[in-house]
């Protein structure tokens, strides 16, 4: 599923009047691609995720998934956020099957459970099937949240800073979990992040947005290796790339001032 954002402008109604957040934003993400979006805080990144998932409609312009214009939420989309938003009263497995209760109402419980278990194994949490979220660490919760976003086999996965609240080591673990998930379940992915290393390591395309109102400022491919390894992040090629991106972010921030 390729995603096309075409000349999208968006503004919010606030007490102080209309707040333009996106301005003439155009970008395209290829089928099965993995695109990271970075940009200054408050520039409109989360707004993009809500637009692509059909939760809100753009003030101007349109968004297409596989050439079909999005007008309302699609069940072929999965979402995960910085806050894992697990349901505290459901155990891990029942949290994961939640999307199936909405989109696959006539699937039996055993089928749902086995779908969820496959994912739990992939993220290495199969022993925690029956635990409550309150019994999990932050990193484990985020793994469960990722499983939930994928359980209905969405064709588009939207991640809004899912690793932002985790410590450096847990983060790197989860990056590898992400690599694994992407390999096993080939989906098109949009990742919002503040972490340039994360963007470069996970995505094959990184987009830098300008300050609010955001439009496309910089777009770069990051296929520096067929199979990316953490150690690649310290190569000179990647250091160069990170320096360029950091520079672009600075430009974007200055525009904001």
């Amino acid at each position: 599923m390729h995603i096309n954002i075409e000349k999208v402008s968006h503004q919010y109604e606030t007490k102080q009047g209309m707040l333009p957040v996106l301005k003439d934003l155009s970008l395209s993400i290829k089928r099965k691609g993995f695109t990271a979006i970075v940009g200054p805080s408050g520039c409109g990144k989360s707004t993009i995720t809500r637009l692509v998932s059909g939760l809100i409609k753009p003030t101007q312009g349109s968004i297409f998934i596989s050439n079909k214009k999005i007008t309302s939420p699609l069940s072929t989309v999965g979402m995960a956020f910085q806050n894992p938003v697990l349901l505290e009263w459901r155990n891990v497995i029942k949290n994961i099957i939640l999307p199936l209760e909405i989109v696959s109402k006539n699937m039996t419980y055993n089928q749902k459970r086995s779908n969820a278990l496959d994912l739990l194994k992939l993220v290495g949490l199969e022993e925690f099937e029956n635990n409550l979220p309150s019994e999990l660490s932050g990193g484990m919760k985020q793994r469960v949240s990722l499983c939930r976003s994928l359980v209905h086999s969405p064709e588009v996965l939207i991640l809004d800073e899912p690793f932002a609240a985790l410590d450096a080591f847990t983060k790197e673990d989860l990056w590898d979990v992400m690599h694994k998930l992407k390999k096993e379940r080939d989906f098109t992915c949009i990742l919002i992040t503040h972490d340039l290393r994360e963007a470069v390591y996970l995505a094959d395309q990184v987009i830098v947005l300008s300050g609010r109102p955001a439009s496309l400022q910089y777009d770069v491919k990051t296929n520096f290796n067929e199979e990316k390894k953490l150690s690649d992040l310290y190569s000179s090629e990647v250091s160069q790339l990170l320096a360029t991106l950091r520079n672009q972010i600075e430009i974007a921030q200055n525009k904001n001032d």
Binding site: P73, F81, W89, I102
Partner: peptide
């Protein structure tokens, strides 16, 4: 976000109410 995970799948208000809002 609690609403978003269900709304983005096309759930209706009632499903959000009894699956999330009420138990919460």
């Amino acid at each position: 976000e609690y609403e978003d995970i269900l709304l983005s799948l096309g759930a209706n208000k009632f499903e959000i109410f009894y699956k999330i809002a009420l138990p919460k």
